[in-house]
Amino acid sequence: MIEHSLGEFEELVLLMVAAFHDKAYGVLILENLEEKLGKKVNISAIHVALKRMEHKGFVTSGYGGITKERGGRRKKFYVITALGKKVLDHQYALRTSIYQQIPKISFG
């Protein structure tokens, strides 16, 4: 499943795209990630992740309408695809199943 591989940061961004269905775009994802992670994230990193996932077919994108904000530049909204959702589910299932195998360990 190499073509469906998903990096850690990519997974976070993909989760964000899924969470903000239809409304996800660069700055929104950035702000929410920073909030959740509690650290600074670079906008270019988010764009790279988005472009890569778009290339892999996990997300699709489309322009919004022109507004006065952003100097008249359109926003580009990202939407998760079926494949992206499947990969996300798969990832989640995998982690959960392994997690459940952990014996109860006491750390004193």
Binding site: Y25, G26, V27, L30, I43, H47, K51, Y63, E69, R70, G71, R73, R74, K75, K76
Partner: peptide, 16 residues
Amino acid sequence: DYLEEVEGDLMELYDK
């Protein structure tokens, strides 16, 4: 094809 998105996001951040 990336310019508008990148520029827009940068501008938004800049304004902020």
